[in-house]
Structures are given as C-alpha cells and as structure tokens.
Design a protein around this nucleic acid. Sequence first.
DNA 1: GCCCAGTAGATGCCATGGCATGTACTTTAC
DNA 2: GTAAAGTACATGCCATGGCATCTACTGGGC
Lengths: 152, 152
Amino acid sequence: MASTGQAHLGFLDDLVRCETRLYNALNDRLRERHGIVMSQFEALHLIRTSPRCRVADLAGAVAAGVGAISKGVDRLEAKGWVQRLPNPADRRSSLLVLTEPGEQLVAEARHTCEERLAELLDLSAEELAATTRTLSKLRRALEAGQVGVPVG
Amino acid sequence: MASTGQAHLGFLDDLVRCETRLYNALNDRLRERHGIVMSQFEALHLIRTSPRCRVADLAGAVAAGVGAISKGVDRLEAKGWVQRLPNPADRRSSLLVLTEPGEQLVAEARHTCEERLAELLDLSAEELAATTRTLSKLRRALEAGQVGVPVG
DNA sequence: GCCCAGTAGATGCCATGGCATGTACTTTAC
DNA sequence: GTAAAGTACATGCCATGGCATCTACTGGGC
C-alpha cells in the first residue's frame, strides 16, 4: 500500500463527525435536563477533579483560549456554581472551586451524560476499549507537543 | 466488569480532545498557508465531491444549522470560490459549485491537510485502520439516527 | 385551477470563542 | 532594593454559529 494521506483524511473526517454529533446530542440533553451546555459541564467537571484549578489549567485542558475560559467562569460564577478563591501562592490568579449547588449539578449532569452516551455508543466493549486506547495515545502525543492550543 | 458508564465518558473525553487539537492545528496551518479555516475547507471539499450540492446537504453533512451554512456560503461566494447556480429542479434552492480558483484552493488545501495530519497522526497503520473502522461504524449509526443535528 | 401544509434558505438577534490589549502581580538580573 | 521582563487573567472587538422568523417556492388534496 503506497500512500496514507487518504487514510489520514478519512480518519479525521470520521473523528470530527462523531465528535460533533455526540457533542451536540449531549449538549441538547444537558440543556433540557439541567440548563447547561457541554462546555459548561466540561469546565465544572474539570474544576471538580482538578486540585488547585486555575483559569489557565482549564484553558490548557480543553485547548481553548484563556480569555474565553475567563468569560465562561464569569458565567458559572454568576449562576452560583463556581467560586473564585484568592490564590495564596499567586495573587494574579484565583483558585476555582465548586459551590455546593455546583457539586450537585455536576453529579447529576454526569449521570445524564453517561446515560445518553450508553444509548448512543452501541459499540462492543472491545471496540470501545481498543478505540479509547488509540485515542488516548494520540491525545497524549498531541498534548505533549502542545498541538492546537490557542494563544489568547 | 460491572459498569461501562465510566468507559463511555472516558471515550468521549479522548475523542473530544483529539478532535479539538487536530482541528485547531489544521485550522492554524490552513489559515497561514491559504487564508481559510477548517470549516471552509470542509465546505469546499464537500461541494467539490457532492454532485448537485445544496445548502441543506452541507448542513446535514457537517451537522450544522442551515442558517450558519447559508452565511458561510455567502462568505465563500464573496471570496470568489463558490457560485450559487439556479436549481432547475427547485427554485427555492441553489446548486453550489466551485469556481476555478475554488478548485485550485481546495486541491492545495487538501494537500496541506494531508501533510500536516501525517506529521501529527503518528499511529501505526493498523491502529489507524482499526480506529477508523470503529469511528466509521459509529458515525453511520449516529447519522442514521439523525443524532445531534441542529434545527435551524 | 386553488388552497394549504410543508420545505429551502436568507436574515436578524444573541451567545460564545479567538485574538489583541490592558493591568496587576511575580520573577529575574543587577 | 529596583528596574525590566514575564505571567495570569480580565476585557474589548470581531467573527462565527444557533435558533427564530420571514419569504419564496413546491407538492399535495380538492
């Protein structure tokens, strides 16, 4: 087999289409059940699971710009799900923590996502595991290379 | 093994992160080399490969709203890469075709994407093929179920 | 033929994200 | 210590996409 360029574009196409549709579907379900969208769920979940989480940490994790995340945190704070605590180690930044309502929301939203994904991902356990393994590996390589991270 | 919910969320997370970073990386490269972004490349490529392509066909293919695509086509038309031809079979819609500059652009952009992907996707041929197979299958299921398609 | 429900897509308003800039703070060099 | 360079993030402007709405056209009934 000669060229792999075709295979690469085909892979990207399937990857992007799957991601878009799953993301949209979860977005819709989260909005109707909890009044939030996926990007908010992702942020809340990251804040919950990351110790000493700052704005820049979120931005790095989701490969978004710092400015966008800062505005997103403003909105989550306004809704009463997140708090910015002064960071004793660095007064330029804040530490992000969930409020009690935020904790509850993320737990419920997580359950909603798991449920909806179980409906949509009708793959065998082997397919799921093998694909996750490959994507994890790819992801680590991209993250290590700082590939595709916006500037702002 | 009891629950698979965890596996599903993990899969989604890897899927989304890979997609975001690859998409961003290609976006950057396309912008600097050709002055377009990924969504434009996708549209141009679809117009090129879809016979009798209409706005709604593009929207369905990329799981975006019709309104957004209509505006995107406006921009591609303004740049001189796409033309809206009257659709003899239905006067409500137009048929989208590439102009000669559009054809050239998409060919060059395609090469740029293949090249960049070859740099970034350091997976074995087997991993790539197996993962593409699973994602293709998932994609077909999602498309068949009309999952994650915006309304507008 | 004529209506009426349905469809294609153009357009407006709004929310979100990118990037550039501004500001406060920290680190480094001297 | 102090000045200069660097960092964290808040903010503003702009481009894009979602959704609602509007218009034009089509495809049935009758």
